[in-house]
Amino acid sequence: MTSNNKFYSIIVGLAVLAYLATALVDNQYYFFAGFAILQLMIMALAWNILGGYVGYVNFGSAAFFGLGAYAAIFVMEYFKADLFTQIITAGCFSAIVGLATGALTLRLRGVYFAIATLALLVVSETLILNWDYVGGAAGAYILPKRNPTVLGLLIVGKENALFGNYKELLFFVLCIFGLVTIVICRLIERSKFGRGLEALRDNEQAAESMGVPTLRLKLIATTISASIMGFTGGVFPYYMTFIDPISAFNLDISVNALAMPLIGGTATWLGPVLGAVVLGTLQQIATVTISSEINLLIVGLFLVGFVIFAPDGFLGLIKKFRNRGD
């Protein structure tokens, strides 16, 4: 079997496994924890498309996430849109914002892009706080439709439905989306586009003079990254059934999105996945056993520790360990 076939078999296998889990596992805590870790993983993968492959730091992951969430709320309020439409809108809206931010600042040095993304986070939070139509500072509640159907199939219900409840459905949706994101990242790494990004990360001026359209590649990468964050945000309000600006634009989201790849390793998609799964699990345990402040402290300390002492993350450490074994 080629490595490609093997990879895609595993992806399909995991998707099937995720569906079986929703049918067989009863304890709802596992879906809660799983959802949290998946969300971390997808945000980390999305951050890494720009941070890892191109070397541009995005501090505003929470802005793209939160704007996605609120775009979903808006179409739900205004058009009474269904879940699927909401998620698509979320992704598209964040993609547009990402493209605009990039177009304004990606001509400048990378640090200015970083600072601008942070600025974007505060501006979007302020806008939403002051916009009462989507709930303003008080937040908004989401009432999921009862017994939704697609093509005559009952999606969520107590009996004869695909999923027992909404949490399981959304867990599955996020699972599929996570797997798709992994596939996207892997495709980028192996494409002409990905090689161009790598060249521009190594040396932007040299890449440009070797025919690589650096600005366009940066803009495409930013747009893809922002849209994935937007999709993830679009699922979030439905899952929580309540949303307010404080939680949707929380800086913790930005910190996690950046910390997971830097801890796991930024070179390939495997780094963010490893970082998110290991650290996400650790965070879940710390939150349950100690406190949620401690889990944030853990992320901060890991982040600083890794960037100083293990700049290539878990992936780098594994490689070093293997080389020593030879």
Partner: peptide, 23 residues
């Protein structure tokens, strides 16, 4: 490595200060 990791370093430092103050 200041462009990527240096930035992340200060971001992490900021976060640690905040969390310690909260605790």
């Amino acid at each position: 490595a200041e462009a990527l990791r240096g930035l992340a370093f200060f971001f992490g430092v900021m976060f640690i200060i905040e969390v310690l103050l909260i605790i």
